[in-house]
């Protein structure tokens, strides 16, 4: 069970307080109506599934209810860092 540092609460909590919310840094197209079906399909459905470092969006569901980003190794489960929305990771997935 992961032990996750919440960047808003400022301490580590058990995984059961959190929910994962998919890949991080997926931005909604500014003008969806201008997207082709292919572009919209890619935004909607296509995600990375790396064995290794991955950027994920999580929410502190039972705590402060804030979303934040996490860089996590999907193989070792090591959490490299957590960072707030709008911030960029210092450890970057390949």
């Amino acid at each position: 069970m992961l032990h996750i540092y919440c960047p808003h609460c400022g301490e580590s909590r058990d995984e059961e307080e959190f929910h994962p919310a998919g890949q991080a840094h997926i931005e909604r197209p500014k003008d969806p109506d201008a997207c082709t079906d292919k572009e919209w399909g890619e935004f909607l459905y296509f995600r990375r599934n790396p064995r290794g470092v991955h950027h994920e969006l999580w929410v502190h569901a039972a705590g402060c209810r804030k979303f934040f980003n996490m860089t996590r190794n999907t193989q070792t489960y090591e959490i490299k860092e957590v960072y707030k929305l709008g911030e960029q990771p210092s450890v970057v997935a390949e």
Binding site: H19, A21, E27, V59, A61, R65, K66, F67, L85, G86
Partner: peptide
């Protein structure tokens, strides 16, 4: 509620 918060926090803060 989580859906509203998601969009407010990530897309339209």
């Amino acid at each position: 509620l989580s859906w509203l918060e998601l969009y407010h926090q990530t897309e339209w803060p």
